[in-house]
Amino acid sequence: MRRVVFNQKGGVGKSTITCNLAAISAQQGKRTLVIDLDPQGNSTQYLLGVSGDSLDSTLADFFDQTLNFKLNPKATGDFIVASPFDGLHVMPSHPQLEELQSKLESRYKIYKLRDALDELAGDYDCVYIDTPPALNFYTRSALIAANACLIPFDCDDFSRRALYSLLENVEEIKADHNRDLRVEGIVVNQFQARASLPQKVVQELIDEGLPVLEPYLSASVKIKESHEQAKPMIHLEPKHKLAQEFVSLHDNLARKYGA
Rank of each mutant, 00 (worst) to 15 (best):
D123T: 04
Y216C: 00
A254Y: 04
K74F: 13
S102K: 13
G87N: 05
L47V: 01
S106W: 10
A259W: 09
K103H: 13
S54M: 14
L135F: 13
L217A: 00
H89W: 14
P238A: 07
M91H: 06
K174H: 09
K241H: 06
D156H: 11
E204F: 02
L71C: 10
A142S: 12
A60G: 10
L213A: 02
M1E: 02
K231Q: 12
S226D: 04
V127S: 04
Q192R: 13
N189G: 02
Q203D: 09
E168N: 04
C19Y: 03
L120A: 02
F6R: 00
L88T: 01
D64T: 15
L37A: 05
S165I: 07
L117R: 05
K74L: 15
H227W: 15
A116F: 00
L210H: 00
R3L: 14
L253S: 06
A26N: 06
V50S: 05
R194V: 11
P133H: 04
G49M: 04
Q96E: 12
S83A: 12
A148E: 14
L88H: 00
L236V: 08
F62H: 00
T58C: 14
E105L: 14
V127K: 04
Y164M: 05
K224W: 07
T44R: 09
A60S: 15
A82D: 15
D125E: 07
I110L: 14
K74M: 15
Y111T: 11
D64W: 14
D78Q: 11
D56C: 07
S57E: 12
L217W: 01
T32P: 10
L236G: 06
A148H: 14
F69Y: 15
R179Q: 15
A243M: 10
L143R: 07
V12T: 02
H94V: 07
V170M: 01
D125A: 02
F153L: 12
N20T: 01
G122P: 03
K112T: 14
